[in-house]
Simulated assay, not measured.
Amino acid sequence: MAEKFIKIQALYGLLELEPFVLLGCLIAITWVFYKFFLKEASEERHRSIRNHFRTLLRHYIVLSFLFLLFIFLQTSEPQIGTVAKITPYVAIVTFLWGNVVFVKTSRLIVLQYLFLGSMKHGVPLLLVNIFSLLLSIVLLFWGVTHVFGLQVGPLLATSAAASVILGLALQDTLGNLFAGISLQLDRNFEIGDWLEIVSGIQKTTGQVREITWRSTTLVGFSDELITLPNRFMANATISNFSPPETPIVRSQVFRLAYGENVELAKQVLERTVAGIGEIRGIPAPWAYVNESNENWIQIKIIYFLDNYGSQFNVGDKVLIRGIEALRAANLKLARQVIEFSDRTVNHEHGKF
């Protein structure tokens, strides 16, 4: 019965010891790559990769059992007639399971390679999923042709009309998919980057959490989840506030009473702001006078951050500690002054 659907000799030729050993060696090489090149990955990334390896190991153990069972049945086939009926089915299950292990191993290799460029925040699974899908499709077509003897070319040609209908039905989904691929190829942002997305009058700010087939997920300042379709992202204006080696510039102003020691105030503010842990030491904070009038002298302190998301918390510390430091140095802060003039109206002459 199996001979009608399966090219048994071709299938048995694929299930030899050499491909099984090579697959095991590929898994071992993947593990060595992880141990030597991903030592500096974050703990969250280590847990993720180790989970992938545990899953892969379970699949390889199942494959080993199926392969040994196939070898046993194949060697017992001449002696036991009943075994001959089930051996092809065990072989096809072993072949399919081997393809699954190969796809998972290749997927893990690609995932680890991408981790090399982003060990801190991780990588989007979109590219890895697309690679796994394409590899699975290639193996499926190859297996159908060599094991089942079916010609895939004519089958694809006759399904052209169905493909057009399916493409129209999935127009939005495919648009988001290809937009997501385009965003990843351009690499304008990565997971963990702080973005400001502007489209018309709509503006969204958040940190990239995940990039999927359909959408990009951000986490806002209040820890709210923001999901934006990839097509929307591709057509919007995106400002990235997390480029490497480029700090975030922020400032705060302080108003001193007119006549206070300006140089001392600048030194106090620079020293105080430099002592806040989230603020970069290089470039160092610096202060200057940017405005003055008869009531006050305004000093602006410039400082630099690495994390865009911490700007409000750091700004609060700069303002509070700056005021406390100025008061501790006996420097008087300015107050709003409103002067009233007492004038008498001369009704007789109609003048003030």
Rank of each mutant, 00 (worst) to 15 (best):
S199M: 14
F148Q: 07
E224L: 02
L96V: 15
Y60E: 15
T173Q: 12
K266M: 14
V62N: 10
G149A: 04
L69Y: 02
L134N: 03
P19Y: 00
S341P: 14
G143N: 12
L319T: 07
V93F: 03
L195C: 10
L26F: 13
S215I: 00
V337E: 15
L264E: 13
N230Y: 00
T217W: 04
F312N: 11
C25P: 15
F5T: 10
Y60S: 15
S239C: 05
G167N: 05
L326Y: 02
L170I: 10
V128A: 03
A162R: 09
A162G: 15
E43L: 10
A161E: 15
E16Y: 00
E16K: 11
F20N: 04
F102V: 08
G167P: 15
L116C: 11
L134T: 01
F102D: 01
Y288C: 12
N51L: 09
L185P: 13
H146T: 14
Q252A: 05
E40C: 06
L23D: 09
F148M: 11
T158E: 15
F178Q: 03
E263K: 12
N99K: 05
K7H: 09
N307E: 14
T205G: 09
K300C: 11
Q267R: 13
S182Q: 14
T75Y: 00
Q336R: 07
N293L: 04
I71R: 11
S292C: 01
V262S: 00
N129W: 00
K203W: 02
A234H: 10
I282A: 06
